[in-house]
Amino acid sequence: MHPIAERIQREFAEGFVKAVEWRGDLAVTVTRKALHDVARFLHDDRDMDFDYIVHVSSVDWPDDEERFEVVWEFYSIRKRHRIRLKTRVPEADCIVDSLTDIWKGADFMEREVYDMMGIRFRNHPDLRRILMPDEYTEGYPLRKDFPLQGKGWRDTFEFLNEGRG
């Protein structure tokens, strides 16, 4: 196993779920409960030193029991290594701890995840929609059950239906 993953497993025996290494990328999955502590450890520990946040993303797996996967990617500018931290949340209770108190840049990225996938972040300073309009109520566009052409709204544009016989 990758030394970073080994270290996380040692420090967080309960929170650690699995580590996958593929094409040189290391992805570590942890439980939702341990997420914030693991992130804090990754940021503060001398050997980890993940000071740079690359992106926050989310993946929808509609068939799984824990439907959503939230993905953070970190980089260490001094140590030059990378890690992808992942956690799973069920649909009924899709809320995870926000990491904005550790990486300030997570603010907008987490807002985007909320906007696109509907995952809420606990202790986020300003959790609002960011790309979609504030008053948008038709769901979260990047979920797999959201159709590509939108949800009905488009059909109300009269000029689109003209001449369709």
């Binding site: 992106h55 929808d60 840049g105």
Partner: peptide, 19 residues
């Protein structure tokens, strides 16, 4: 692709605009 996420520098830079 099952999911494709774009890490756009402009978006992330805007996050620091207020600061």
């Amino acid at each position: 692709p099952y999911r494709l996420k774009i890490r756009a520098p402009s978006f992330i830079h805007m996050g620091a605009f207020d600061f």
